[in-house]
Design a protein around this nucleic acid. Structure first.
Ligand SMILES: [Mn+2]
Ligand SMILES: [Mn+2]
Ligand SMILES: [Zn+2]
Ligand SMILES: [Zn+2]
Lengths: 137, 137
DNA sequence: CCTTGCCTTAGATCCTGTCCAAGGTAGGGT
DNA sequence: ACCCTACCTTGGACAGGATCTAAGGCAAGG
């Protein structure tokens, strides 16, 4: 994720300790943290970091396409560093945990033009809902 | 939608003016109102109806499977009376309006068991995001 | 009709996320 | 190495959506 920070610095981003820590916290696979979870983990390394800065940084990373924002049924949004390879999600209806999945097939191709109602469709999101192994036990 | 009210009354629901009006407001095709929109329309027929009652009634209708709750990217949730025939949604990223769509193909079949991560998957939700004709103009 | 337990109500409260004004600092320029 | 300044961070106020509470109201069975 240090690549990311370099890339952004070249585009005029100031490299601050806060932004570095947020980027570190977001690193990994199947990572889907809420903003408050990001803040809690960032605060372990940088205790004075504020919630506003976490929100600001996340918003900018999303806006620049470096992080994916996923909303889950009225709960807090989750932030996903795996933005460069498109994928979908498995969501536990009980605890809200998420896993990445890559279904075969292209749902965009499954939308007949007769059903588009004049919309210019740019993306599709597929969410599989169920109970995760932990919650099933 | 009077069928609905009868069905619920037989299951022990009290038939109040408020619940009747909420059910009326929710009737129709491609209906995806927010709770406040439901409240506003209900209040045209029953001026003293409270927001709390609208929220209570919607929550119960959703819980009993008579109305679908659709969350749309951090905006207010929308309520969909068309719960009995499964369908998916076209969502305008600008104004938040929605239309029902019925894509061909079954996304559930597109999830390889190797990708299930032990989840017991019970439903799949597909959202097509784009710009609606009104917002494109 | 009466009674009772469910329903409705206004307002407080909670949660998530944004906005603001004040002070701090990265990093280009000298 | 040091300044400057525009950009960044901060705490707290604020806003919208949704839930909760305690008090009074009313559907509907007896
Ligand atoms: Mn993901
Ligand atoms: Mn619908
Ligand atoms: Zn779970
Ligand atoms: Zn629109």
């Amino acid at each position: 994720m240090s690549d990311l920070l370099e890339r952004l610095r070249e585009r005029g981003w100031r490299l601050t300790a806060q932004r570095r820590v947020v980027a570190e916290v977001l690193d990994g696979d199947h990572v889907h943290l809420t903003a408050d979870e990001v803040h809690a983990r960032a605060a372990r390394r940088l205790p004075e970091i504020s919630r506003a800065t976490v929100y600001n940084t996340l918003r900018e990373l999303v806006h620049r396409g470096e992080v994916l924002e996923v909303s889950t049924d009225g709960r807090a949004k989750r932030y996903d560093p795996n933005a460069h390879r498109p994928h979908h999600h498995l969501l536990c209806s009980r605890c809200g945990s998420m896993r990445d999945v890559r279904p075969t097939g292209d749902p965009l191709a499954d939308l007949p033009p007769s059903q588009s109602f004049g919309f210019t469709v740019s993306e599709v999101e597929v969410t599989y809902r169920g109970i995760c192994p932990d919650c099933a036990a």
